[in-house]
């Protein structure tokens, strides 16, 4: 068992029901492979840094879970076939993971809640960031 993190960008044109359907489908795949989902997070609707499939915005989702490698194959396949997913990336977070200990740790930090909305980064904030970078 390894701990993985998958981030995917859903098309902004999807309705809430369609997004829920996509999320439950992915969670179902993890459960089917005896994986353990630590948290699923909605990172919010953000402006993309460049256009993907002619879209300038996208809704970001983040899954953190422990599972076997076979789960990743199916998860990535279903993400690839889904045309409403603009892009996805899976990253190994830890080679060996004690599932219950990790779940307790995330629970303790209060990150286990399924959906955490983050507000969109405004143009003004982006300008501030680039200015700070310039000063450095």
């Amino acid at each position: 068992m390894r701990e993985y993190e998958t981030v995917y960008i859903a098309s902004p044109q999807l309705t809430e029901a369609q997004v829920d359907q996509l999320n439950t489908k992915l969670k179902g795949i993890i459960e089917r492979h005896d994986g353990r989902l630590f948290y699923a997070r909605n990172l919010g609707k953000k402006n993309l840094a460049y256009r993907i499939k002619k879209q300038t915005k996208g809704t970001y989702f983040c899954l953190d879970y422990a599972s076997a490698g076979t789960c990743i194959v199916e998860l990535e396949r279903s993400l690839m076939l889904d045309e409403s997913v603009l892009r996805f990336l899976t990253v190994v977070k830890a080679e060996k993971v004690d599932v219950d200990a990790r779940a307790a740790e995330i629970e303790a930090r209060g990150e286990a809640s399924p959906v955490v909305e983050e507000r969109e980064i405004t143009q003004k904030e982006m300008a501030e960031v680039t200015e700070a970078a310039k000063e450095e």
Partner: peptide
């Protein structure tokens, strides 16, 4: 960059 959080080059920003 892959996930379009930050641009590969700034010319892409003006395009989008």
């Amino acid at each position: 960059r892959i996930l379009a959080f930050i641009p590969f080059t700034t010319s892409q920003v003006s395009l989008s």
